[in-house]
Amino acid sequence: MAVKEKAVIMSSEKLSRSLRRIAHEIIERNSGTDNLVLIGIRSRGVPLATRLANHISQIEGQALPVGILDITLHRDDIDTFQEGKGTESKSHIPFSVEGRRVVLVDDVLYTGRTVRAALDALLDYGRPSEVQLAVLIDRGHREIPIRADYVGKNVPTSRAEVISVKVTEIDGQDRVTIEERVPD
């Protein structure tokens, strides 16, 4: 199956504006940055979390700790997962999450299973006072009762479509597109 690009959902400017808006919302909702930490879900949640932290520190003048969460070991689909493929990514949370307000950051919210696994993985590190969720794109089709607290853009999709988020840090450019699987 090949994929065909259908439409551009976010250009580099739009993506950047969305993140700035989410940064403001995070500060507003938490009445500042006290006790706040950001944790990005591998892989594209990580650069997004770092950028959000930069925006927040520019606005509030206070640097925020940023962690990395890898959920491979917490997935619920090991039985159907890519066969025999190892994992080289690991979590890196260089601070205690005990009693902190944690904002989990990911690129796309879809079935909710990734976030479910991320919550499990996060709770192994301690007991945060609160966990919030920020995503760049919410594309619907939830399979478990999970919702995002901060959303860059809601995009109605069909299951056959694919949302592709590209970020400069990983892909060399900022761009969100909607793609469709087409038979070769």
Binding site: D70, T72, L73, H74, R75, I78, G84, K85, G86, T87, E88, S89, K90, S91, H92, D120, A121, D124, Y125, G126
Partner: peptide, 24 residues
């Protein structure tokens, strides 16, 4: 190589306070 690379991720689990993951 695959085993050694995966072992690195596993070693991070060993360094945690709660060294248990639900994987298997």
């Amino acid at each position: 190589e695959g085993i050694l690379v995966t072992a690195e991720a596993m070693k991070e689990v060993l360094g945690r306070d709660i060294k248990k993951v639900p994987t298997l």
